[in-house]
Amino acid sequence: MAYSDKVIDHYENPRNVGSLDKESSDVGTGVVGAPECGDVMKLQVQIEEGVIIDAKFKTFGCGSAIASSSLATEWLKGKTVEEATAIRNVDIVEELALPPVKIHCSVLAEDAIKQAISDYESKQNND
């Protein structure tokens, strides 16, 4: 399979790999996918006054899954929560030039963003 240059770049130089403290009240964590399906993405955001000040990911999956989550973290930083929830998987598909068989990777990334933000929001509501 031929990869786009952007996928290769994210695979070789992934942005924002790592973990934030998932217990912290200003951190939201999303874990999506399943090992049996060949992809698991963990995406975390740290939010201050409605703005994402940090984002990290760890991904088990193919190069396109790694690139999708890496790109997502890059996009998330500096965005408001509202802007972040507006990110669509098609934006990722377009940016990375993902072929049809890899579209599910972008869907996972979108799901991970949504889950991370809703995890953060539920923490706020519980406070």
Binding site: S19, V32, G33, A34, P35, C37, V40, K42, K58
Partner: peptide, 24 residues
Amino acid sequence: RDMSPLYEMALEGIDLATVSWGTH
């Protein structure tokens, strides 16, 4: 492995077989 959430979980002592994964 350094960027694998599964490896991280395994190092934390989480048994991956007991995790309930979402479907997609």
